[in-house]
């Protein structure tokens, strides 16, 4: 059992890949924003890569360990301590009942992950333990962790001292400037050549009003092709309006002039165009960026995006652990 002493800013149970199969009823997948770090944390403690663990955002939790176990912390550097002593991240660590784990503010990156051998024993809500707190679904009770809560852990043996091999962990941008891949489409033909050029040349700033539903970007205005203005009225009056359509996860959704990247707890559909989509292999960069970080986008093809996803899946395997 893990006892939540202080919950941190928003610490939630997530599993990977999350709540898949309910997009046509409006359910987002949820799951960890940085599934690279999340999967490695699980593999370090001997779990299946997708087992339920904790995602801590910006400010980590304080947790009292109720039993002997093996844990691993990955992702953002939250300078974890065990009973006040610094604890190594990106490796599995043996812990004793009664010890206190403190995850502090995220120094590098935004989201830290805690895996515990056996995984957190949370109920399945539509096939997933992932918390979607906006709709009070998932986790133990539909919400982020609360002070005083006890998180049950499945019985398992972990091995301490396992590490992530050099070069196999995500390179979190210390200068807070990210190069993020983006695949044109589904609605790239609504943007004119100058608009595409501007999108790819701009250093976009991530706004403070960004969370697990959407990442709002600050930057120049967009310009459109005729498609955006010459359309049946039920598309809506704004250039960025389209007859309501399903949104891909990672879509860069244009609301008027405001681009919003739709992430793991985002909407399944709506009436705005999506000129680009961030591919799954780049989601971890979104998960580890903070408000006021800067993004440059690099246009890649569907094939290139799928090759990146395959490479990431290979990295998120036992081959990366020593």
């Amino acid at each position: 059992m893990l006892e939540i002493v202080k919950p941190g800013l928003e610490t939630s149970i997530q599993d990977y890949p999350g709540r898949i199969g309910f997009w046509n009823q409006g359910f987002p997948p949820s799951g960890p924003m940085d599934s690279w770090s999340f999967r490695l944390a699980n593999l370090l403690v001997g779990n299946a890569a997708g087992a339920p663990g904790l995602e801590a955002q910006y400010m980590g939790p304080t947790i009292k360990l109720q039993g002997d176990s093996v844990i691993a912390v990955t992702g953002a550097d939250m300078k974890p301590t065990l009973d006040g002593e610094p604890m190594a991240i990106w490796q599995s660590v043996a812990v004793k009942a009664g010890q206190t784990l403190v995850l502090g503010p995220a120094r590098l990156g935004a989201r830290g992950y805690l895996a515990v051998a056996g995984g957190i024993d949370a109920p399945q809500w539509l096939g997933s333990a992932s918390t979607f707190h906006k709709a009070s679904v998932g986790g133990l009770d539909g919400h982020a962790s609360q002070a005083g809560q006890l998180l049950p852990v499945r019985a398992a043996q972990g091995t301490p001292g396992r590490r992530v091999k050099a070069g196999r962990q995500p390179a979190i941008a210390a200068d807070r400037k990210w190069l993020v891949e983006a695949v044109p489409g589904p609605n790239d033909d609504w943007i004119d050549a100058a608009g595409h050029e501007r999108f790819l040349a701009t250093e976009w700033k991530l706004e403070a009003r960004s969370d697990r539903t959407g990442y709002r970007l600050e930057g120049p205005d967009w310009t459109f092709t005729e498609k955006a203005t010459d359309k049946p009225p039920e598309n809506g009056s704004d250039a960025s309006n389209i007859v309501d359509q399903g949104y891909p996860l990672g879509a860069i959704n244009l609301c008027g002039q405001k681009p919003i990247i739709l992430v793991h707890d985002g909407p399944s559909m709506g009436g705005f165009i999506c000129p680009y989509t961030v591919p799954s292999a780049a989601f971890w960069k979104l998960g580890q960026s903070k408000p006021n970080d800067h993004y440059r986008f690099k246009s890649i093809s569907v094939d290139e995006a799928q090759a990146l996803a395959r490479t990431l899946d290979e990295i998120c395997s036992d081959d990366s652990i020593e």
Binding site: P186, P248, G250, T277
Partner: peptide, 16 residues
Amino acid sequence: LPGGDRYVTVEFGNEM
């Protein structure tokens, strides 16, 4: 219409 590495939108028309 491709949507990243995991989605495709099949668009049948542009009206309600």
